[in-house]
Simulated scan of single mutants.
Amino acid sequence: MGKSSKDKRDIYYRKAKEQGWRARSAFKLLQLNEEFDLFKGVTRVVDLCAAPGSWSQALSKEIFGKPHSDDARIVAVDLQPMSPIDHVTTLQADITHPKTLEKILEIFGGEKADFVCSDGAPDVTGLHDLDEYIQAQLILSALQLATCVLKVGGTFVAKVFRGRDIDLLYGQLSYLFDKVICAKPRASRSSSLESFIVCIGYRPRPGWKPELRPDVSTEEFFQGMGIGRAKLNDDLSVDDEERKIAPFIACGDLNGSYDSDATYPIDKKDASSDSKKSLDPVQMPTAPPYKKALEMKRKGELRVTK
């Protein structure tokens, strides 16, 4: 979380700093849990694309300290390094690699996960069709690992970019879960394409055994599921692709009706000279952009040529 003038006015950004969250996105997961009770009975969790770790923070706070939490395990996975979080095992690894799956199952003692989530997203280009496609591929990559590690009846939650072809992704997920819902937490800006897909009740397809392999694409991975795809028959008739629509709901309150797109002044009672100072980040970046270039510039090893 940086210190731009826009971010200073963002109420969820300010609340995240005040409450010790690494990023404002923690409120999105908490609001989803408030609506769907995602953490009930959950003891084994995989947080994919986890850096900087705000979702893992929320999971640790909500799961540990409750009955039967002594055996709980939370694994956070990301290609980027992450600073330690209480009760969370962090893995700097590729979510598409079989060794990552093996390590997660080893941490869980061979048991399957109750809950898998992903708040990952690519750097957006502004070209909505392209951004939606890349995000869908990231979700399918996360889903690959989820189908291998998630227990029957488990839950999968992931960030999505809603666009004109989102119903195809809904349809694919509907073959694997009893209930698929698209939710927009209040902490997510309404001006953003971002929403979250909540998939409840994992049920593997009959006769289909997911196997994570580095040489297999997402398309090839899901081929054996028996999903109805559009195809042209010999008589030139067309079997339409099976698509489903997930219900869309808005959610999130957490005892404060804040609008993430609105600008809120600092409370008068907190308007002392000390409170006007910008709060330091909860956790400094472990791998900030251009780190190597900045270090070289300080040492005089980087020169700009015209």
Rank of each mutant, 00 (worst) to 15 (best):
K103H: 04
I95M: 11
G207I: 13
D129N: 04
R164P: 10
E132G: 08
I11F: 11
I63F: 06
W208E: 07
F248C: 03
S257G: 01
K15H: 15
K244L: 08
D240Q: 05
L279A: 13
P185E: 07
K3M: 07
N233T: 09
G109A: 02
C199S: 11
R205Q: 13
C182Q: 12
V46L: 14
R186C: 03
G201E: 06
A58F: 08
D235E: 01
L127A: 15
S195I: 02
E62M: 06
R44W: 02
F221C: 02
S275I: 08
Y258D: 00
D119Y: 02
Y133I: 15
Q57Y: 08
L173F: 15
H68W: 11
Y290K: 15
D114A: 00
F108Y: 06
P214R: 06
F222K: 03
T147W: 11
P122Q: 04
K61T: 05
F248E: 03
S188H: 04
D70I: 09
S217R: 02
Q57R: 05
F39S: 01
G163E: 10
K209N: 10
W208S: 13
S192A: 04
Y258A: 01
R229Y: 05
L279V: 06
T43C: 10
K244E: 08
D86V: 12
P84M: 07
A250Q: 04
M225S: 00
T96R: 12
D71Y: 14
P210H: 06
I104K: 04
I11C: 14
H97N: 09
K209C: 08
S141H: 07
R14Q: 15
E62K: 14
R229I: 10
E242P: 10
L59C: 14
A246I: 01
G256R: 10
P52I: 05
Q172Y: 12
S195M: 13
E106R: 02
G126M: 09
G228I: 15
R205W: 06
P288Q: 00
E35K: 08
K231F: 15
E35M: 10
T263P: 00
R162C: 13
Y133L: 15
K297D: 07
K17Q: 15
V116Q: 09
K231R: 12
R44Y: 06
I139Y: 02
F161R: 05
G171N: 14
D70N: 14
F115S: 03
K15N: 13
S237D: 04
G65Y: 07
P265S: 13
D239I: 12
D239M: 01
G207Y: 07
Q283P: 05
G224I: 08
K159G: 09
P52L: 12
R189T: 11
